Simulated assay, not measured.
Amino acid sequence: MARQHWPDWMNPAFEERFFERAREVSNMEELKEPTHQQQEITARLRKQLIPEQVELMLKWEENINYRCTLEKEWLYYAGLKDGLHIWKRLLNSMAD
């Protein structure tokens, strides 16, 4: 993913913050019920499908999760870029 809108040395700090926020999201109260429902559905599918179908379902789920992670990461970095752009414009307007 291209995110070279700042020096390379800044990437680890941004990535650490991204993962901190991701951990916070995983503990959100609003996600507990949907997570529980997903676990129940997964258990039912494992009981009702043959092993090959379960494997295919897990690959499908992995692909969706990966795609969603890439989308969230892109949005995170886009938000950083937008925030920095707004901050720069604000600072420039205050200098006038």
Score class of each variant (00 low, 15 high):
R23V: 03
L45A: 03
D96H: 14
A95D: 15
N63D: 12
Q37D: 04
A43D: 01
L91V: 12
W6I: 03
E20W: 14
L91H: 08
Y66I: 00
W9F: 14
K88F: 06
K88T: 01
L75P: 07
Q4R: 07
L49K: 06
F14E: 00
L80C: 04
D96G: 12
E40C: 01
L31M: 04
I50Q: 14
I41H: 02
Q53F: 13
E40H: 03
N11C: 07
L84C: 15
Y66E: 14
E20Y: 15
R17F: 03
M57V: 10
V25W: 00
P51F: 06
L75S: 02
W6K: 11
A78C: 02
P7F: 04
F14R: 05
W74V: 05
Q48H: 02
E52V: 09
E52H: 06
K81I: 14
R17H: 13
G79L: 01
L56I: 08
R44Q: 10
L91C: 11
G79P: 11
Q4K: 08
D8F: 15
L90S: 13
R17P: 02
K72A: 04
L84N: 12
L58S: 06
A78Y: 07
F14A: 00
T35N: 07
P51E: 13
M10G: 08
N92P: 12
F18Q: 09
L84Q: 13
A78E: 14
E30A: 03
T69M: 05
T69G: 00
W74Y: 13
E29M: 01
D82W: 05
W87A: 15
N65M: 00
E61D: 08
L56V: 07
K47F: 01
M94V: 06
A13R: 12
E15C: 00
E61H: 03
M94N: 15
L49P: 00
W87V: 00
N11D: 12
Y77S: 09
R23G: 09
F14Q: 01
C68Q: 15
T42W: 04
M28E: 02
H5L: 03
R46V: 06
Y77I: 12
N27Q: 14
S93M: 01
Q4H: 14
Q38R: 04
P34F: 08
K32F: 09
